[in-house]
Design a protein around this nucleic acid. Structure first.
Length: 152
DNA sequence: GCCAACGTTGGC
DNA sequence: GCCAACGTTGGC
């Protein structure tokens, strides 16, 4: 069982939106970055734990925990011409982009903000701080323990 | 809204 | 296959 961090913009889709989704579950789609895609496609497994990170807000930070309920399958949005994630170069015979399903586990009473993360020893090597733009990223077991302890 | 970081595209 | 131009992400 591995840990991951998935980013989302709360103005677009927040952890509250996840809670309010049917069965508190949603399709995590629209990933259009190869490095993130490779993690999703090759390494994210059913039952893996996912830290939900809110970006583009004040303050950005980790707001809760979800889990993977369905492993990678072709992201339908890539084949829908009206969808903002449509990719005309993706071939249905060999889909370029994948999605997974995630289910809400819990929302932290207090979010762990980015400034806090930067200060906590043990989190300073997180991919989040080194590769700011990656929207799907691995979290080590040690980092996960620290995050969960800090989140109460 | 600005700007740094960095991924992607396309000419050569 | 290099690299400049361009687009996007995301913190501030």
């Amino acid at each position: 069982m591995a840990y991951w961090l998935f980013k989302t913009e709360p103005d677009v889709f927040s952890i509250e939106d996840l809670v309010n989704s049917p069965k508190s579950t949603t399709r995590w789609d629209g990933i259009r970055n190869y490095q993130a895609r490779n993690f999703l496609r090759d390494q994210v497994k059913k039952g893996d734990q996912v830290f939900i990170y809110h970006s583009q807000c004040k303050p950005p930070g980790i707001v809760g925990l979800a889990k993977v309920t369905v492993t990678a399958y072709p992201d339908p949005a890539q084949f829908e011409p009206d969808n903002k994630y449509f990719d005309e170069r993706s071939n249905p015979e060999d889909p370029r982009w994948v999605a997974v399903d995630v289910q809400h586990v819990r929302t932290f009473k207090e979010a762990l903000s980015l400034p806090q993360i930067k200060q906590i020893p043990g989190l300073q090597q997180m991919v989040l701080l080194r590769q700011g733009r990656l929207s799907i990223q691995p979290v080590t077991d040690a980092e996960a323990k620290v995050i969960l302890a800090a989140a109460g």
